[in-house]
């Protein structure tokens, strides 16, 4: 387990050594900033609800782009062999890379604090939902990172890893918007599967253990899947 830290540090730094980090963060801020502030003055409400409302959709594109290279690139270049013959376990590799991606998402969210402060200057902001929104964003980020990591472990092609990741994250986000297609008795189950549904709850400022449990479960399933995918390559 002590090998998690060097792997985390290496992967986290790799984002910022290469242009990936700057490109992804710029695009993320551009998209969220634009969509948030174009409608902000129409609503005339001093809250970040619309910003957080955008996050599940934006994350389901941005996070697979962050995770796609994590394992697929190593498999493709062959560095996976170099890595795995060092004294590390699959768990070290999966956790190290997952934490690096999660840390990156946290770094990506930091500049958006400027939105909160801007809004606070314009009106009376309720900090509870803002804090809840950020906690929710981190939980959502963890779940999607784990899914993206799983997608990256399934293939040696980064583009395919990206597409698989987007497909899963996007379905998780949209599943509760599709509910009207479903018979009534299935509604509860599918609503529970939706990432958007749980995220909205937390973003309201209500931190319910059921919602937290949902994100922790998705993260766990994703990471365990990635672990199994790596093991199968032996």
């Amino acid at each position: 387990m002590r090998q998690v830290l060097p792997i985390f540090r290496k992967e986290f730094r790799a984002y910022f050594v290469t242009p990936i980090a700057y490109i992804v963060i710029s695009i993320f801020l551009l998209v969220t900033g634009w969509f948030f502030f174009t409608t902000f003055f129409l609503f005339n409400q001093a809250n970040l609800r619309n910003f957080f409302g955008l996050l599940p959709i934006i994350f389901s594109f941005v996070i697979p782009a962050i995770t796609m290279r994590l394992i697929a690139e190593e498999l493709n270049v062959g560095t996976y062999e170099t890595l795995l013959t060092l004294p590390v376990t699959f768990l070290d590799v999966v956790l190290g890379k997952f934490l690096a991606c999660w840390g990156f998402i946290a770094a990506m969210l930091i500049p958006t604090a400027a939105y909160a402060f801007t809004v606070a200057m314009l009106g009376q902001i309720d900090w509870g939902p803002v804090a809840g929104g950020y906690i929710g964003a981190l939980l959502l980020g963890a779940a999607f990172s784990a899914v993206g990591l799983l997608a990256s472990a399934l293939t040696r092609n980064q583009i395919i890893a990206f597409i698989i990741g987007v497909a899963i994250c996007f379905s998780l986000t949209l599943i509760d918007k599709m509910l009207f297609f479903l018979p009534r008795y299935l509604l509860g189950i599918f609503a529970y599967l939706g990432a958007d549904f749980h995220f909205e709850n937390i973003a309201k400022g209500v931190i319910d253990s059921r919602d937290v449990l949902y994100f922790v479960s998705v993260s766990f399933i994703g990471l365990y899947g990635a672990h199994l995918a790596l093991q199968a390559k032996k």
């Binding site: 060097p6 050594v17 290469t18 270049v77 062959g78 060092l86 590390v88």
Partner: peptide, 26 residues
């Protein structure tokens, strides 16, 4: 172990890479 054709991380500096290996090797 040195794999065939030495696959290494292309965007890392040599020193950083060796430092990273040293950290993993504790």
């Amino acid at each position: 172990y040195l794999p065939e054709s030495a696959p290494l991380y292309h965007d890392m500096l040599v020193y950083d890479y060796l430092d990273y290996v040293a950290n993993i090797r504790e």
